[in-house]
Design a protein around this nucleic acid. Structure first.
Lengths: 237, 237
DNA sequence: CGTCAGCTTGATTACTTTCAATTGTTGTGG
DNA sequence: CCACAACAATTGAAAGTAATCAAGCTGACG
């Protein structure tokens, strides 16, 4: 369970290729960012950067899942987004030249590359296509954030939990059986997505289980009736 | 109470200059967008575009206040943002090539210019600076949206109402007396900001009034103790 | 002067949180 | 491998908060 930078390929050969925004870069530019990038390993639970930290670069996830969360005054966490292999993190703060607005935590063991701030800003100027791609990313993020806002403000806890499960499915996908969500989150983390408490989450999950929408085994959630779940969540896609 | 396009100056001479993102454009490009732009008058309450509508262009507010809101399934509205003189609207959907994600409604009589979609996209390519500025705008919007999410998910109604008032102050400013918010919103609209019901909003406003934080006259809200209000809202700036 | 939209109030109900206590699970060091 | 500590899950009961429902009010306006 220990890998070093050498296990992460050069950006030029990165097999994340074809997914992330950085993949559209020219070979030359990929070579350039490879020179400067740092590649790090983060153990499950480890924090990659904290809300409020000074921005030191752009993070690009080579492998593993990351959660982005904000902390309320009362100390309660709200998960705002997930990021996975090939996703980039920190571009928002980097662009507006502000501290990080959320805390990034490894949800499983992760390998993450860091591209220095200046290098990325240079790239933006050098490759106009990159600007447009980042614009689209931000647009998507904003759309999702506003949708989540609407959901949390208007839906019941039950609906929000149902939606959280749908979100997990979309973010993490299924395990081999094609029904079990390929991630283990604590009840508390699920609560932090739905914006409720751990206890209520437990009760609600039990309820959804009784209603036959999901199966709960010790470590994972299996979706038994996706359509009904999506209907309950008010998600149509 | 009736003005026509001719009252709106050419973009080259627009006195919004120096505030909006478009102001950084070269004279040539400003001249170009002036050629194609449509200038419209919207009466208070009128809808500028609806959530789900096909995107036809970029809106630039020449005068007046606009609210951006989304509709929940239950028909309840959630206000996601305000826009005022010199702000632009619709860039997000335009960039990600999707329908509008929110409904824009004139909160007072408004004059709004429309720049055709293609023209704006051309501009983005022509002036790299514009891309960066739009990136920053989006970053800010995202930041605010995520903050609002955190607030609504973790604060009590009373705190949210207090915050809504702070938001109104920041968006609309004060009237001449330096204490009264320069906008009249219905209780229902305030409820739609805070994500609660009209009745609860009324009761909570009355409470804040009794506690000496605000004054309520028939049509407006006067802030009596900004600091205490901000403290209650958990806003520190 | 009637109407309509917005405002207000009270009573009731439903939903969630909070608190407290218990049980289960996991990783670690002896 | 076991015992312990720390964390995670669960359950019940009580308290609180805000939504809902049902009436009146009020002021603006044709």
């Amino acid at each position: 369970m220990n890998r070093s930078k050498k296990d992460i390929p050069s950006c030029v050969d990165c097999d994340v290729n074809g997914h992330g925004v950085l993949c559209a870069l020219s070979k030359e530019n990929k070579a350039k960012i490879t020179q400067n990038k740092g590649g790090n390993f983060y153990k499950k639970g480890q924090v990659i950067f904290y809300e409020g930290n000074h921005v030191n670069g752009l993070y690009c996830i080579y492998d593993g899942m990351v959660k982005l969360s904000k902390l309320g005054e009362n100390g309660k966490e709200q998960i705002v987004r997930f990021a996975k292999r090939s996703d980039i993190l920190g571009y928002r703060s980097l662009l507006s030249d502000e501290p990080y607005q959320a805390t990034a935590t490894a949800m499983e063991d992760c390998w993450v590359c860091v591209i220095p701030k200046e290098r990325f800003l240079n790239l933006l100027e050098a490759e106009p296509k990159l600007s447009l791609d980042v614009l689209k990313l931000l647009s998507q993020d904003l759309k999702l954030a506003e949708q989540l806002l609407l959901d949390i403000s208007q839906k019941s806890v039950k609906e929000r939990i149902a939606e959280a499960i749908i979100l997990l499915k979309k973010s993490f996908g299924y395990q081999n059986d094609g029904r079990t969500i390929a991630a283990h989150l604590t009840r508390s983390e699920i609560a932090d997505i739905a914006g409720t408490t751990t206890e209520t989450t437990i009760r609600t999950l039990a309820q959804l289980s009784q209603e036959g929408l999901i199966d709960l085994s010790r470590k994972s959630i299996r979706i038994r009736n996706y359509d009904a779940l999506a209907r309950m969540a008010g998600v149509f896609d």
